[in-house]
């Protein structure tokens, strides 16, 4: 669960050796999902797959509309999103701060890095029983787990990014009279940014994963709770709907970071002209 290693920043999108597709192809990536949906609907409508095993897309869509109109869906969605965001801000904030501190200060690194590397080897979801004992089944437990899960990818990638800033640029900055503060703001931080974004993307993935597990185990609101509740009453379409919603939220988060990434790294040759 905690196999989060640092990656080199997203440079793989350069056109490279692959021939580009001719003509317009904006809709092409959605052709396969559309075909699957259609086959699924047909399989359900012809009775090939029973509705009690897998409800049809049209049923799920109707349920989504109904729950949206009743406001139920947004309540659960809002609760889940708030938990995710709070965990991200806390865990990501601490991870970023510690990553910067340990990247910049040798004392700080010597003091904390070994400890953190040891803790990293504990799968954070293995802590669930302990966390429930500590925090009960309230918000605290979920916040703690999400924050812990998000912490490591952001910490590791921030540290990695800062450590790997081009030392020649730092020497240049010094030679041109930059103060330590200026050096950090103008050279170190922008240089570490691509790696920090990689950490953020990983962190977002872990954030949703942790939240799903935590909400499924113990909650009285949120998407995971909605799914568990529906399972108890055998309302299959709601179960599938909540799964799809998790997928959509994950995709949304990824799209947002990609856009952010692209904005912040517009100087990079990997993004030139895109």
């Amino acid at each position: 669960m905690s196999v989060i290693e640092t990656l080199s920043p997203a440079r793989s999108r350069s056109p490279g050796w692959r021939p580009s597709l001719p003509g317009r192809h904006a809709l092409l990536p959605y052709a396969v999902p559309a075909a699957i949906l259609m086959l699924w609907e047909i399989a359900g409508a012809t009775g090939l797959v029973a509705d009690t095993v897998m409800p049809r897309p049209s049923t799920i869509f109707a349920t989504a509309v109904r729950m949206t109109l009743s406001g139920e869906l947004f309540t659960h969605l809002g609760v889940s999103a708030a938990r995710a965001l709070a965990g991200l801000v806390i865990g990501g904030g601490i991870g970023f701060a510690l990553g910067v501190a340990n990247g910049v200060s040798r004392i700080s690194e010597t003091l904390t890095d070994t400890t953190l590397q040891m803790i990293r080897n504990i799968p954070h979801l293995a802590l669930i029983p302990l966390v429930i004992l500590w925090f009960g089944i309230g918000e605290g437990a979920k916040l703690f787990l999400v924050a812990l899960g998000v912490f490591f990818p952001i910490y590791l990638n921030t540290l990695h990014g800062i450590r790997n800033v081009d030392s020649q640029l730092i020497e240049m900055g010094r030679a041109y009279g930059m103060t330590s503060r200026e050096l950090f703001r103008r050279v170190v931080l922008p240089g570490a940014l691509p790696s920090i974004f990689v950490g953020l993307r990983y962190g977002l993935g872990i954030m949703w994963l942790t939240l799903i597990v935590a909400e499924t185990l113990s909650a009285s609101s949120g998407l995971g709770y909605m799914a568990m509740q529906a399972r108890e009453f055998m309302i299959l379409d709601v179960v599938v709907l909540s799964i799809l919603l998790y997928a959509a939220l994950g995709k949304l988060a990824d799209t947002l970071t990609r856009a952010l990434d692209r904005r912040a790294l517009k100087w990079s040759p990997a993004y030139a002209g895109r």
Partner: peptide
């Protein structure tokens, strides 16, 4: 090397 800041 030129040692220009790529992001500036």
């Amino acid at each position: 090397e030129p040692r220009l800041l790529p992001w500036a």
